[in-house]
C-alpha cells in the first residue's frame, strides 16, 4: 500500500532529510512515526502524499509511483488519502460543514452527494451538532476533529497525520487519538507522526523511530526477532 524503496531526500540548502529509508505500511495498519524534531518525519510523510519526490529511490502509494506520477496522478492519489496537520489548516471564513464540503467541491463531486457525506463525516468525528460553527467558535480539539472529518470525507484508505495533537492539551489529545483508533478499527490505515512518547508507550501499535533521516527502530522488525 505504501512502500519506500531506498528513499533519500536531499534539500539543496539543508542537506539530507531522509536517508535511504526502506519500509512498507500495509492495509489497515496503525503506525506511529516518532523521533526528535528534524529527524525527517515530516519529509517522510510529504513523500507519502507526493508533495515532495525523493531525490533517489522510489515511493509507491496505492499503485502510484514517485518515478512516473504526473501532477494529475498526484491529485487523483490525494483524493484517496486523508491528510491532517498540527495546525488544522481550516479556512476561517467557512463553517465546519463548508470546510469539510470543500474537499469534495474542489474535486468535482456533485452537490447532491456532498451534503450526506459531510453530515456522515461530522457525525463520525462527534461534531454532528456543530456543523454551522466557524473554526474560531470551536476549541482546538474540535477544530482538529473538523480537519479529520475533512480527511475522512473522501473515504481514504489511509489517514496521514503529522503531529495532529501537537497543539492540543492532554484531554483533547486523548480524544483525537481515540478518534484515530476508531477510524483505524473501521479499516482505514493511520500513519501518525508524534513526539508524544506517553501516547506511544501505552499502545501496542507498530512504531517507527527516526533519527537524522534514517529509520533507526521498527517495532515490527523487533517483534520478528
Amino acid at each position: 500500500m505504501i512502500r519506500f524503496t531506498h528513499v533519500t531526500k536531499e534539500y539543496p540548502r539543508t542537506g539530507t532529510a531522509v536517508d535511504d529509508v526502506t519500509l512498507h505500511v500495509g492495509k489497515g495498519e496503525f503506525v506511529f512515526l516518532t523521533g526528535p524534531s528534524g529527524a525527517g518525519k515530516t519529509s517522510l510523510l510529504k513523500m507519502v502524499y507526493l508533495d515532495e519526490r525523493p531525490t533517489s529511490g522510489e515511493v509507491r502509494v496505492s499503485g502510484t509511483s514517485s518515478l512516473t506520477a504526473t501532477d494529475r496522478d498526484i491529485a487523483k492519489l490525494r483524493r484517496k488519502l486523508g491528510i491532517v496537520f498540527q495546525d488544522f489548516r481550516l479556512l476561517d471564513n467557512r463553517t465546519a460543514e463548508q470546510n469539510v464540503a470543500f474537499a469534495l467541491e474542489v474535486t468535482g463531486v456533485p452537490r447532491a452527494i456532498i451534503d450526506p457525506k459531510v453530515a456522515r463525516a461530522l457525525t463520525q468525528v462527534g461534531l454532528a451538532g456543530k456543523g454551522t460553527a466557524y473554526p474560531r467558535e470551536l476549541s482546538g480539539g474540535e477544530q482538529q476533529r473538523v480537519a479529520i472529518a475533512r480527511a475522512l470525507v473522501n473515504d481514504p484508505f489511509v489517514i496521514i497525520a503529522d503531529e495532529p495533537t501537537g497543539n492540543l492539551d492532554d484531554r483533547a489529545t486523548r480524544g483525537i487519538f481515540q478518534l484515530l483508533r476508531d477510524i483505524n478499527a473501521a479499516g482505514t490505515a493511520v500513519v501518525m507522526a508524534t513526539h508524544n512518547l506517553e501516547l506511544i508507550r501505552r499502545q501496542e501499535f507498530r512504531t517507527l523511530e527516526m533519527a537524522r533521516g534514517a529509520v533507526v527502530f521498527d517495532s515490527a522488525d523487533a517483534a520478528a526477532l
Binding site: 508533495d51 487523483k76 492519489l77 490525494r78 491528510i83 474537499a103 474542489v106 474535486t107 468535482g108
Partner: peptide
Amino acid sequence: AIMRLVGATDGY
C-alpha cells in the same frame, strides 16, 4: 494549499 492537499487538479 488545502485544495492541493485534498486532490484538486492544477487546472481546477
